[in-house]
């Protein structure tokens, strides 16, 4: 088992800076998701940890050993690739056994470990087949089994579920979480899918433009985004941002006032659609409903607050019609205040 320290890593591709001074500590046995839109540098960071890419500056330390200058095979880790990279010319057994064979494990050892990994991923009945005969989901299981068979201290996963269809993805996600918890492997998991990151990870590092915007538990990142980007990227619907003016610690919005943190005047009020409740007495933030979408589990209301687009989630039984104006209440502790100039959250300890 091993912890991972990413120490001020920079990566330039010509004049383009893919990673700008990224630092991150992953504890032993922890599951950290690197989450961000495409082009944010998450895959580049993963490939640098793997050794498939060389950083321009900075260090990677795994289990107390500086591996910055080592080739991938000397780093003692395993990886699952986005397009599986299951060897087409080898049977499932030989694929899963590949890492063990490279370690010159004894035949009995190989057989035992391959069978255990295969049983864990429910591929034990396909061991003598070739990958071309398997479905996408089964190939993904082979790729995960191949990685787990070597009992790695560190497991890197690069969007492993993104090539699967929605239903299979949900199933694999649940299974992956159970399997990895049992193995206790330190895992770094790259994804652009927030539900995967939220569901799987102990902590999420949200990346944007070659930087880590925020690191925290899924709930922290959801409830208290550190920047406007994080609030807008996480959650469905994303957090609403309403431009307001803060005067002497008070914001006036509709017929109510809200206390706001001091420090700046131009602010944005970050409000999660789920945190807003419709006030029965009609006093609160005025929300002009334009579209009502019944989603089954909830109503999705799209409209505007002070002329700015907002999406609010209401109970499925609420009777709200398009064109209505409703008043919204929210727990002040669930609100996020963003400095309009810096895009960063203010007034948080």
């Amino acid at each position: 088992m091993a912890d991972i320290v990413i120490d001020h890593v920079v990566k330039d591709f010509g004049t383009f800076q893919a990673l700008q001074d990224v630092s991150l500590v992953v504890e032993d046995g922890e599951f950290v998701a690197l989450l961000g839109p495409s082009g944010c540098g998450k895959t580049t960071l993963l490939r640098i940890i793997a050794g498939l890419e060389t950083q321009t500056a900075g260090r990677v330390v795994i289990g107390g050993r500086d591996v910055s200058g080592l080739t991938p095979r000397k780093r003692g880790l395993a990886m699952v690739f986005q397009n599986y990279a299951v060897f087409p010319h080898m049977t499932v057994f030989e694929n899963v056994a590949f890492g063990l064979r490279m370690q010159k494990a004894s035949t009995a050892d190989v057989k035992r470990k391959v069978e255990r990994a295969a049983a864990l991923l429910h591929i034990d009945s396909y061991l003598d087949r070739y990958p071309a005969k398997l479905s996408g989901g089964q190939r993904q299981r082979v790729a995960v089994a191949r990685a787990l068979a070597v009992e790695p201290a560190v497991l890197l996963m690069d969007e492993p579920l993104s090539n699967l269809d929605a239903l299979l993805r949900l199933e694999m996600r649940t299974e992956l979480k159970a399997v990895l918890r049992e193995a206790g492997t330190t895992t770094i998991y790259v994804t652009h899918d927030q539900t995967e990151a939220m569901g799987l990870a102990d902590r999420i590092a949200v990346m944007y433009g070659g930087k880590i915007e925020q690191i925290g538990s899924p709930l922290e990142i959801y409830a208290t985004p550190a920047t406007r980007f994080v609030g807008g990227f996480i959650g469905s619907p994303p957090m609403n941002f309403i431009k307001v003016r803060c005067e002497q610690g008070i914001v006036r919005i509709g017929n109510i006032t809200l206390p706001c943190p001091a420090g700046c005047e131009d602010m944005e009020l970050g409000l999660r659609g789920e945190d807003a409740m419709i006030a029965a007495d009609g006093s609160g933030i005025p929300f002009d409903v334009r579209v009502v979408e019944p989603m089954g589990s909830h109503l999705l209301l799209t409209g505007s607050i002070n002329g700015q687009l907002a999406r609010i989630v209401a109970p499925p039984t609420a009777t709200i019609n398009a064109g209505e104006r409703v008043a919204l209440k929210a727990d002040p502790s669930r609100l996020t205040w963003i400095d309009s100039n810096t895009g960063r959250a203010v007034g948080r300890a």
Partner: peptide
């Protein structure tokens, strides 16, 4: 040949010759 095959082999400990 996609380069992922060679990369995967490298990660799992294969030398250039292997």
């Amino acid at each position: 040949i996609p380069k992922e095959f060679s990369e995967a082999a490298e990660i799992f400990g294969a030398s250039p010759w292997t």
